[in-house]
């Protein structure tokens, strides 16, 4: 029995969530293979061939895989599937897009966003915005799974010596093509793997005001996140959204500023080790889960905090 992990990468680098997904795979079985599907991906292959804890790297290199289109990558996964009992991918927008397509082609019911491996058939997953945890047992012969990265420690990115094997590409499904990516560039740490996250909500009031959140984040080397309300209002780009339907984070320190603490937001950050909330409303629900709550006007408290750190 072997387990296949689908690497998330941008052709030049392997994304951190891949390393957490490998840990989940190793809890199922020690023999883990990694599929790296893309194009012009010397950088990603270089990184993949050093990852600890995997026996083999499967390289699928073809122009039609360069933009990770679900229609094309699913075909590669389906072709490899019969060699594996389990196929795992990170529960990121990449994994969420590709894996269900492969699962349907294989006639298996995917298990989304697992937070624990109980045994080879049984997994825990949060449902209802994290208000409940379901333990589910799969009867499918091949199990397709997406993995919540924050609940599994990453394997080491270096020190491994997996063998590398080429796999034949399956061609272009001819259904979709890439037009462009408006990447939100930033020198800050990646939101889902950062040690510290500073998030702002509707209380911040405007895109201009968000600079005070960013200034604090930069002072302490943090990533910047946001509530849905802050994204909807256009203060920050969509990929800053933390929550049930955005990104899930669990840093050592999460600082929520001007965020009320709706259940949909909590779903994405309540597993953080230490939570700080700054809000002027002492009854804001965020205070119920915060380790350190500061009832204050953020426009006074945040600059003061930034200057004293």
């Amino acid at each position: 029995m072997s387990v296949l992990v689908i690497a998330e990468h941008d052709n030049s680098e392997i994304k951190a969530a891949t390393l957490n997904t490998i840990t989940a795979a190793r809890q199922i079985d020690g023999d883990v293979h990694l599929l790296v599907a893309g194009a012009n991906m010397d950088g990603a292959m270089q990184a993949a061939s050093q990852i600890h804890g995997i026996a083999k790297v499967l390289k699928a290199d073809a122009p039609e895989l360069g933009h990770h289109l679900a229609e094309n990558i699913a075909l590669v996964i389906v072709e490899l599937a019969t060699n594996y009992t389990h196929i795992l991918a990170p529960a990121s927008t990449f994994g969420k897009n590709v894996m269900p397509r492969a699962a349907a082609l294989l006639d298996t019911q995917q298990i989304s966003d697992i937070s624990a491996v109980v045994d080879a058939d049984t997994f825990e997953r949060p449902v209802y915005a994290g208000n409940a945890v379901a333990t589910v047992k799969s009867s499918d012969a091949i199990k397709l799974i997406t993995v919540r990265g924050t609940t599994f420690d990453p394997v080491k990115a270096e020190g491994g010596q997996p063998e590398v094997e080429d796999v034949a590409p399956k061609g272009d499904a001819g259904l979709s093509s890439f037009v462009g990516l408006e990447a939100s560039e930033s020198d800050r740490p990646e939101l889902t793997s950062a040690d510290i996250v500073v998030s702002g909500g509707r209380g911040v009031g405007s895109a201009e005001n968000f600079a005070i959140i960013e200034k604090l984040a930069d002072k302490i080397g943090a990533a910047v996140g946001a509530s849905r309300a802050a994204v909807d209002a256009g203060y920050v780009p969509n990929d800053y959204q933390v929550g049930q339907t955005g990104k899930v984070v669990a840093p050592d320190l999460y600082i929520a500023i001007g965020i009320s603490g709706a259940i949909q937001h909590l779903a994405g950050m309540k597993d953080s080790k230490v939570i700080v909330a700054i809000n002027k409303d002492e009854d804001a629900p965020i205070f119920q889960i915060a380790d350190y709550g500061l009832v204050a006007d953020l426009f006074e408290a945040v600059p003061e905090l930034e200057s004293k750190l």
């Binding site: 298996t108 019911q109 298990i111 109980v118 049984t122 949060p126 449902v127 994290g130 208000n131 409940a132 945890v133 379901a134 333990t135 589910v136 047992k137 799969s138 009867s139 499918d140 309540k270 939570i275 205070f287 119920q288 889960i289 915060a290 380790d291 709550g293």
Partner: peptide, 16 residues
């Protein structure tokens, strides 16, 4: 295809 073994409340966080 997925049988429900159990559904539980998540651990509650001590905040406040």
């Amino acid at each position: 295809r997925l049988s429900i073994v159990k559904v539980e409340e998540p651990p509650t966080r001590q905040g406040g």
